[in-house]
Simulated assay, not measured.
Amino acid sequence: MPEGRHRPQRTCLGCRQAFDQSQLLRFVRSPEGDVLVDYRGKLPGRGGYTCLSIDCLRQAVARRQFDRTFKAPCRVSSVDGLAAGLEEALRERLAALIGMARKSSQIVSGSSLVLDALERPERLAVVIVAEDISAGIAEKIEHKARSRGVPCLYFSTKADLGQFLGRGERSVTALTAGRLAETFLAEWQKLKEFQGKFDVKDPSA
């Protein structure tokens, strides 16, 4: 963003602190009165915002801040339900980015090919390992990635990774360096921040 350009600010309904709008989660009220997660910020209507934090979301619901923001009664089935909806949206976003990487040839797929690519680690931005991979292969991939300075994370299942790539089961894939991989890592960090943990096996840690 050019220097001096205004960044929209919004106040978190939980902690009541102001942040750049891009750093916050957006929620909208449906015509039926349900509070919905608007992760991509594209749903119509007035928005309410919270930090990327389950604690702020709980505070907003407990204090009935959504009712005040939307100036109408709001129905929240449960905080856990909203949190689950957000996590699903984040996972769908990550899956879409993997699919985009495949279409733009910014991906290496398969454990053997990823291990080979790690011999030239400057090519790779992140290694993605299926959560249901065998322990032996996972350890081998993670050790190689860490030794080459490439972040390694665990996401989804072998069947899902294959589906994201339009192929059969895949236990390991990797994104090549570039803006798309940077976006993937930023979205992954949001997911881990919301879950309250950081699972990226960062070699610099």
Rank of each mutant, 00 (worst) to 15 (best):
A135M: 15
C152D: 08
Y154N: 07
G178V: 08
L57D: 03
L57R: 03
V79R: 10
H6G: 14
V61P: 02
Q21N: 10
P44H: 12
D199F: 03
S53P: 11
D160K: 03
V127G: 03
R146K: 09
E131H: 08
H143P: 12
L82I: 05
S77L: 10
G168V: 07
D132S: 12
E87Q: 13
L124M: 00
C12Q: 11
L153K: 00
A84C: 15
C15V: 09
I54E: 15
E139N: 08
F198R: 11
R5S: 15
R58G: 13
D20G: 15
D199W: 06
R40W: 11
D38E: 04
R102Y: 04
R102I: 01
R16E: 12
S77P: 12
T173K: 03
R26S: 10
G48K: 03
Q163W: 12
D20N: 15
L185P: 04
L161H: 07
R146H: 10
L82Q: 03
A181L: 01
G110T: 07
A96Y: 00
D202P: 02
I98N: 02
V114L: 05
D34H: 08
E187Q: 13
S134C: 08
K42G: 14
R16V: 09
E169G: 13
D34M: 06
L124Q: 00
P8K: 02
R91D: 04
A72K: 11
K144S: 13
R148H: 02
S78G: 13
S53N: 10
T176F: 07
L24F: 00
L161K: 02
A205K: 05
Y154K: 07
I54M: 14
T11Q: 10
G14T: 01
L13P: 10
I107F: 00
A135N: 15
R29S: 15
S30L: 14
Q189A: 08
V129P: 07
R167M: 14
S171Y: 05
D55F: 10
R146G: 11
Q23P: 11
P8V: 01
L124I: 01
S204I: 06
A95E: 06
V200H: 01
R102F: 04
R26Y: 07
R170E: 05
V35N: 01
F19A: 12
G136Y: 13
F70G: 09
C15T: 10
G196D: 12
E122T: 10
S53Y: 06
A138C: 11
E92W: 06
S78Y: 10
D67W: 06
K158D: 02
L86I: 12
L97M: 02
C152S: 09
A83W: 00
E122P: 11
T183V: 08
E193N: 11
A159T: 15
Q189F: 03
S147D: 09
T173G: 06
I137Y: 08
